[in-house]
Amino acid sequence: MQGVVKVNSALNMRSGPGSNYGVIGTLRNNDKVEIIKEVDGAYEIRFNGKVGYASKSYITIVN
């Protein structure tokens, strides 16, 4: 499943599905991501070869 990031500035990509996990990357508006699955209000995603988590509130599914 594919998604597009929709933010005003940037969205943190984290090592786990919550803000208490470390930041492993930054997503920008209109970045395209692969959605692997939904976990606790976040999506597990793949972006630029990395797998991490981002809030589903800022990712629009575009299948």
Rank of each mutant, 00 (worst) to 15 (best):
N48W: 05
I45S: 00
V7L: 05
T26K: 12
A54I: 14
N12G: 11
Y43N: 00
M1A: 10
I36G: 02
Y21F: 13
N48G: 10
G18T: 10
T26A: 07
K6S: 11
N20S: 12
S15L: 08
R28I: 10
S57L: 14
N8C: 15
I61S: 04
G16M: 05
I45T: 00
E34I: 12
S55R: 06
R14D: 03
F47L: 05
Q2K: 12
D40M: 09
G52I: 03
S15W: 06
E44K: 12
L11P: 03
K6N: 11
A42F: 15
M13E: 02
N30H: 09
V7H: 11
G22R: 13
N63G: 13
G22I: 14
F47H: 09
V4Y: 06
Q2E: 11
S19M: 13
I24R: 02
N48C: 11
V4P: 01
M1D: 05
G22C: 13
K56M: 10
I24M: 06
V23I: 13
D31P: 01
V5P: 01
A54H: 01
G3W: 03
A42D: 15
K32N: 09
M13N: 02
S55C: 14
A10L: 14
V51G: 04
G16R: 05
G18S: 10
A42R: 09
P17G: 03
K37N: 12
S55T: 11
F47P: 00
N30I: 02
K50Y: 07
N48L: 09
G3R: 01
N12M: 12
V23E: 04
N12L: 14
G22T: 14
A10E: 14
Y21Q: 08
F47D: 01
R28W: 08
N29E: 07
N30R: 08
L27A: 02
L11S: 04
R46I: 14
F47C: 04
R46H: 08
G25N: 06
K32S: 09
T60M: 13
S57Y: 14
I36A: 02
E44D: 00
I35G: 00
P17D: 03
T60K: 13
Y58E: 10
M1R: 12
G52A: 05
V5R: 01
G18H: 07
N29H: 09
S55I: 08
Y21W: 10
G52D: 02
G49N: 09
G49I: 02
V33T: 00
V51N: 07
D31I: 03
G49P: 01
G49F: 03
V7W: 04
M13S: 02
S55P: 15
I36F: 07
K37A: 13
L11C: 15
V7E: 03
S15T: 09
R46T: 07
R14I: 06
S15N: 09
N8R: 14
M13W: 06
M1F: 11
V62A: 08
I61L: 10
A54L: 10
I24K: 02
I59P: 01
Y53I: 03
N8G: 12
G25W: 05
Q2S: 11
V62Q: 09
N8D: 14
V23C: 08
I59E: 01
S55M: 08
S15P: 03
K32I: 15
L11V: 15
P17S: 05
Y58V: 08
S15M: 08
I36H: 03
L11E: 07
